[in-house]
Each structure stands twice: as structure tokens, then as C-alpha cells.
Nucleic acid binder design. Structure first.
Lengths: 95, 95
DNA sequence: AGACTAATTAGGAATAAACCTAATTGCAAG
DNA sequence: CTTGCAATTAGGTTTATTCCTAATTAGTCT
């Protein structure tokens, strides 16, 4: 949970997630989109992987990163719970 | 957006949010729940305030913190968008 | 005013994060 | 087997975060 929100707390990592919505991408393709050194991007990919937000698999010479939706859903569930019980207009008990 | 996820990326701050779901609390009441110095908690409250997750207002001698649901909803919307267009089973276009 | 309580601000130390360059590993051809 | 491309790991610097204690501000009460 903590690694998850930490991973989301960086613009570069959020943009990587955004890129991966269209489908898996190679590390190099991702790195090419940013104005920073490739190893820096590798670091961000590692953070995303450790948070469970992406999976990596080797495909020949390159490595393909794929978005893992279920990790996003986990964060989503946390926030939904927060909104539900925190909003006075949405308590099922006191109808 | 960035401050928002950054604020959520710390267990103490998430627990403060959780505490505030039941209703507003004074700074001291919040600080009393943690095993750390009060000024440290003040720092976390400031981070939450800057993220828009809480509002603070003075109430006599004390200061009351209140959860701001709409900021949570903002994060929620971001993640929802991610799940929607990232999930192959949920593309309305290709039915 | 003076004393007491609530909370923040100031300043500083320890730890973690983000970034870089250089060196290394893993695969694929030739 | 060696050359070349893809990507990561290593090592180090800069900046940000987290936490502490001490000092300060703000409000209450007698």
C-alpha cells in the first residue's frame, strides 16, 4: 500500500503508467519519451515494479513492461473507502 | 495532483485522514494518537493541508482539522481514468 | 499583566529519493 | 567468438523528507 502510493507520487512514474495504458512497451521506448538518462528511467520502472503497478518480461533483446491494473484497483479501493465513510451523505446505516 | 499523491504516500498521513472520517479533530487530539513529537505531526498536517486534503480552522484555543473529501475524489478520478482506459474489457468503442 | 495550555515555526541531523556517468550483463547476429 | 544493441547495476552527488528539541505565537483565564 505504501509503495503503491509512493510510486504514484512522481510525475514521471504517473506518465509511464499513462503510456502503458495503450499496451506493453519496451524499456527503451519508454526512456526515449523522457528528457533524462536511461538509467534514471530504469529506476522509475523498478519502483513501479516493486509497487506491483507493472510487470516486466524479457522479449528477445528487449524487456517489455506491462501495466498491472489490479494494483491500480487496490489504490482505488482504498480511496473509495475513504470517500464512502467520510461523506455524510453516503452512510447506508442511517437512512 | 502531485502534492496530493505525495501526501497520500505516508502511513501517518493516511492514518490521519482515516481518523478525520469520523469528524473534525483538534491538532492535539491527532498528535496524541501517534508515538512521535507534536511538531512532527504538525508537519504532516501541513502537508495534508497543502495537498488540499484537509482544512484547518481555529476554534478558540485549539485548531480543528477537517477532511476535504473533494481532494480525495480528485485522486479517485485520476485512478478511475487509469483503470477504465487501461482495461481491455472496458473499451466502449470496440463492441 | 502573568501564568497556563494549544499549536506552530525555527533550526538541524539522519535517512531516503532522484539524478548523473561509467561499467556491466544479456541477447542476437555476423 | 566478437561486435553491437538493449537494459541494468554500481557508485556518487544533490536535493527532499522525516524527525527531533528549543523557541515562539496565539488564546484563555484569573
Amino acid at each position: 500500500m505504501n509503495l503503491l502510493f509512493k510510486a504514484l507520487a512522481h510525475p514521471v512514474r504517473r506518465r509511464i503508467i499513462d503510456m502503458l495504458r495503450a499496451g506493453p512497451l519496451a524499456s527503451g521506448d519508454i526512456a526515449a519519451e523522457f528528457d533524462m538518462a536511461w538509467p534514471t528511467v530504469t529506476g522509475h520502472l523498478t519502483a513501479l515494479k516493486e509497487a506491483g503497478l507493472v510487470d516486466a518480461e524479457r522479449a528477445g533483446a528487449s524487456i517489455r513492461y506491462r501495466l498491472n491494473i489490479s494494483a491500480v484497483e487496490e489504490a482505488l479501493a482504498f480511496l473509495m473507502d475513504l470517500v464512502r465513510t467520510g461523506d455524510p451523505a453516503a452512510k447506508p446505516q442511517e437512512t
